[in-house]
Each structure stands twice: as C-alpha cells, then as structure tokens.
C-alpha cells in the first residue's frame, strides 16, 4: 500500500502519479489521505489499481475511470465517477448530485444516499444505491442499470431511453415517458447479480422495475408538451 498525502503533495502530483501506473505495475494499492473535499481526485485513471480515499471528496472524484477500483471512505461531491468507462467506485457515505453522470461502463456503489440527478444521461454504467436518490435521477438515461434500495425522488427517469431502473422503496413521481414495467424472471436474475456486485443483501423480489414507455421515441404532436 502506497500512501499519498494530498495536502502535502498536491492534486497534480497525485493524478500524474496515478496516470503513470501501467497495467503491469506492481504498485497497485494506493491510499489518498487528507482529501478534504478536494476536486478531481483520481480522475482519468487507466490501470487496474485499487485506490482508497480516506475522507470526503469534492467534484468529479474518479471521473472517467477505467479499470481501477476506487473506494471513498466518506461522502462524495458532485459528479462522482462521471463518464466512468470500466472498473468500480464504492462510496461508503452519501453522494452529491450527478453521481455516475453519463457513465459508460463499470459499477458505481453508493452505500449511503445519492442526491439529485443520480445516473443522469447514463450510457451503460451500473449504479447501485443502498439508500435513497434525489429528484431528476436517470434523466435521459440511455443504457445500464440503476438500482435503488431506498426511495426515489421526483421525476424519476424523465425522458428515459433504454436504461433499466429498479426501486425497492417508494417513487415520489415518474418523469415523462417513464413507466413501471413487469418484473419478469430475467429481470430478477439481472437484479440479483447487480445487488451482489453492489455488496447489498436486499431481496430482488422486493423491487419494482421502471423503464421507458418509448412514446417519445418518434416525434408525435400529441406528446409535444412532454418533450
């Protein structure tokens, strides 16, 4: 385990050190101390590193992550794991707005709650939230899975494309073109796998599934106000 003191050595040194690690590096385990809510920690990592951030982070921690496993032992600020490609990001605490925004792959696990716009424009990422999520989550979500063990806020899945949403608790309201769909056996299996990857022991049968009604897929004047 190599320890990096953000306060002493600074952001640029942190990210350039992480970027310098190739897939074959022996230095795979990293610990970042004194994050103190700083922005852009461990962004653009492109190697199978195991990085632990000891404390809360600011904007865009683990942004565009590839291959790495990044653990945040605290709360995550806005846009955590934005546009993640692969690998995984695990947050012990809560996540601020835009968690996993536009993510294209990998797994994002939030053990606390997520604020608004969780999984906005997601494009293939799997997001598992142990707690609740805020309003406008999965807005324009295109692909991937959003699992919520708690409750969802207003306008869930507004203008949804092909992403799947599973919610165990209540949904305050559904957004335009988002509907509840039948939970068939194959969805239970998908969800079981997601929950296992999300380190969550919830029972898949307790969840409801939401998806796109696909009414906005081709422009129809009768739906003009919903666009």
């Amino acid at each position: 385990m190599q320890t990096f003191d953000l306060e002493a050595d600074g952001l640029r040194a942190l990210n350039s050190t992480l970027h310098a690690q190739k897939e074959s590096t022996n230095a795979t385990a990293w610990e970042i101390i004194n994050p103190k809510g700083s922005h852009a920690l461990a962004v653009g990592v492109d190697a199978p590193l195991d990085i632990t951030v000891r404390g809360s982070t600011g904007y865009y921690c683990a942004g565009m992550n590839k291959l790495a496993t990044i653990r945040i032992k605290g709360n995550a600020g806005p846009g955590v794991a934005e546009n993640m490609m692969s690998g995984s990001v695990i947050i012990d605490g809560d996540a601020s707005q835009y968690a996993g925004a536009t993510g294209r792959g990998g797994t994002l696990v939030i053990k606390g709650n997520a604020a608004s716009r969780c999984g906005i424009s997601m494009k293939g990422i799997d997001i598992i939230v142990h707690g609740n999520i805020g309003h406008m989550s999965a807005f324009m979500a295109q692909s991937g899975n959003l699992v919520v063990c708690g409750d969802a806020g207003d306008a869930l899945g507004d203008s949804l494309y092909e992403a799947r949403i599973f919610v165990r608790g209540s949904v305050r309201s559904l957004g335009a073109d988002c509907i509840e769909k039948e939970m068939r056996p194959e969805h239970i299996e998908i969800l079981r796998d997601l929950l296992a990857r999300g380190e969550c022991d919830a029972d898949p049968s307790e969840f409801r599934r939401y998806g796109s009604a696909r009414n906005l897929y081709n422009f129809n004047v009768d739906n003009a106000s919903a666009y």
Binding site: K36, G37, S38, H39, S56, G58, Y59, N75, G77, G93, D94, S96
Partner: peptide, 16 residues
C-alpha cells in the same frame, strides 16, 4: 461545497 466545512470541529461525525 463540503470543502468549506472540513475544518469545523467534529465535522467527521456531523450529519451531512
């Protein structure tokens, strides 16, 4: 931002 509060006493255990 959370950054603004990191030096408050007891922030580690605060409800955030």
């Amino acid at each position: 931002e959370y950054r603004a509060m990191v030096n408050l006493p007891g922030i580690e255990t605060a409800r955030v």
